[in-house]
Simulated assay, not measured.
Amino acid sequence: MTATPPRPWLTPGAHARLAAELADLRRAPGPGDGSGEQDRFVLDQHRQARLRELQYLLRNAVVGEDPPDDGVAEPGMVLTVRYDDGGTETFLLGTRDENGQDDLDVYSPESPLGRALHGAEPGEQREYEVPNGSIVRVTLVDARPYGHHRTVHNGQSGH
Results as ranks from 00 to 15, higher is better:
Leu25Met: 07
Arg26Thr: 09
Arg27Phe: 06
Arg27Val: 07
Pro29Lys: 15
Gly30Arg: 14
Gly30Ala: 09
Pro31Glu: 00
Gly32Arg: 11
Asp33Met: 04
Asp33Ile: 05
Gly34Tyr: 02
Gly36Trp: 04
Gln38His: 14
Arg40Trp: 03
Val42Met: 12
Val42Arg: 15
Asp44Arg: 14
Gln45Lys: 15
Gln45Ser: 13
Arg47Glu: 01
Gln48Arg: 15
Gln48Glu: 02
Gln48Tyr: 09
Gln48Leu: 13
Arg50Asn: 05
Arg50Cys: 08
Leu51Trp: 02
Leu51Ile: 08
Glu53Tyr: 12
Leu54Met: 05
Leu54Gly: 06
Leu54Asn: 06
Gln55Leu: 08
Gln55Val: 11
Gln55Thr: 15
Leu57Lys: 13
Leu57Glu: 00
Leu57Ala: 07
Asn60Ala: 14
Ala61Cys: 07
Val62Ser: 12
Gly64Asn: 03
Glu65Thr: 12
Asp66Met: 07
Asp66Tyr: 07
Pro67His: 08
Pro67Lys: 12
Pro68Gln: 05
Asp69Glu: 03
Asp70Gly: 09
Gly71Lys: 08
Gly71Arg: 09
Gly71His: 06
Ala73Leu: 03
Glu74Ile: 10
Glu74His: 13
Glu74Trp: 06
Glu74Asn: 12
Glu74Leu: 13
Pro75Ser: 03
Pro75Cys: 04
Pro75Met: 01
Met77Gly: 09
Met77Lys: 15
Met77Pro: 06
Val78His: 02
Val78Pro: 02
Leu79Lys: 11
Leu79Asp: 01
Thr80Met: 02
Thr80Ile: 04
Val81Gly: 10
Val81Met: 01
Arg82Phe: 02
Tyr83Trp: 02
Asp84Arg: 15
Asp85Asn: 06
Gly86Arg: 07
Gly87Val: 05
Glu89Phe: 10
Phe91Trp: 00
Phe91Ile: 00
Leu92Ser: 02
Leu93Gln: 01
Thr95Gln: 04
Glu98Val: 08
Glu98Asp: 05
Asn99Trp: 08
Gly100Val: 02
Gln101Ser: 14
Gln101Phe: 07
Gln101Asp: 01
Gln101Cys: 12
Asp102Trp: 09
Asp102Leu: 12
Asp103Ala: 14
Leu104Trp: 00
Asp105Phe: 09
Val106His: 06
Val106Trp: 00
Tyr107Pro: 05
Ser108Glu: 00
Glu110Gln: 12
Glu110Ser: 13
Glu110Leu: 10
Ser111Pro: 04
Ser111His: 10
Pro112Gln: 00
Gly114Phe: 00
Arg115Thr: 06
Arg115Ser: 09
Arg115Pro: 06
Arg115Phe: 04
His118Lys: 13
Pro122Gly: 08
Pro122Gln: 05
Glu124Met: 13
Gln125Leu: 08
Gln125Lys: 14
Arg126Cys: 09
Arg126Pro: 12
Arg126Ser: 09
Glu127Tyr: 10
Tyr128Thr: 08
Tyr128Glu: 01
Glu129Met: 15
Val130Met: 10
Pro131Leu: 11
Gly133Arg: 13
